[in-house]
């Protein structure tokens, strides 16, 4: 199920505790899932289904997830057992250079 998302949208998993915040998405609909099941808006109530074992690597609070070409980016605001996937491909953690605290 492909949906056009917008930056700032809060999405929740229907198979685990995972929650994500959309930071950047392409201007086309994508099939966005956590743990193999489509995500739903934080305000919606989804049908609880089973996690796909192939997409159960989990996500961690505070990590940013992106595709290989970095056309999209999601912030995990609550960790969960499911992996984020877009159009069938699992997303990876965005590597960020560690910076010294400047504040």
């Amino acid at each position: 199920m492909s949906v056009q998302y917008k930056a700032g949208a809060k999405l929740v998993s229907t198979v685990c505790d995972g929650q994500i915040l959309v930071l950047r998405v392409p201007a086309v609909p994508v099939d966005l899932r956590i743990g193999g099941a489509p995500v739903v808006l934080a305000s919606a109530v989804g049908d609880k289904t089973a996690i796909d074992p192939a997409l159960s690597g989990g996500i961690q609070t505070g990590k940013r997830y992106t595709d290989e070409a970095e056309t999209m980016e999601f912030l995990c605001t609550k960790g969960g057992a499911g992996t984020i996937s877009v159009d069938g491909t699992a997303l990876g953690i965005k590597a960020a250079k560690a910076l010294p605290s400047s504040d």
Partner: peptide, 23 residues
């Protein structure tokens, strides 16, 4: 909000501090 969020997410590691760190 977008400006400040961009700065924080781009430069600060979530829970990157040790439990007894203080600024």
């Amino acid at each position: 909000h977008d400006n400040l969020m961009s700065y924080i997410l781009g430069s600060v590691d979530f829970m990157g501090a040790e439990a007894d760190d203080a600024s």
